[in-house]
Amino acid sequence: MKNARHKSEHVLQELVAYAHRHGMNDLNIHLACSTQGFDIDLEGDVSCRPDDLDALKQALNAPRQLELEGYYYELLGSSRDGREFQLIGAMVEHAEVTCEQGCLRIHVRGR
């Protein structure tokens, strides 16, 4: 539980940095942690489709990589760029990213 909480804080920090970089200043965030892991839902309005959305989708849906998760997860949220897609992808089990009618929604599930 403690581990999931700690990881979720890092992942959330990185996702918020990504949202801010794309001008999303009004965000709805839902975070749920349990012994099974964590779920994060983040949504907000964007003026246009982010140019790196496909890269984000691809990276978040990459296979989980224990070796990256175990060593590098402290880097998540360490810069204000919000570009550590690969690292989030290596840490989460499931991700959905949609951008419809000016609303960007990101859902990730990890453990």
Binding site: Y71, Y72, Y73, E74, L75, S78, S79
Partner: peptide, 14 residues
């Protein structure tokens, strides 16, 4: 080594 390596990442931010 593992906890220290993880911790020091933040020192130089990658």
């Amino acid at each position: 080594l593992p906890p220290l390596a993880n911790h020091f990442l933040r020192f130089h931010q990658g």
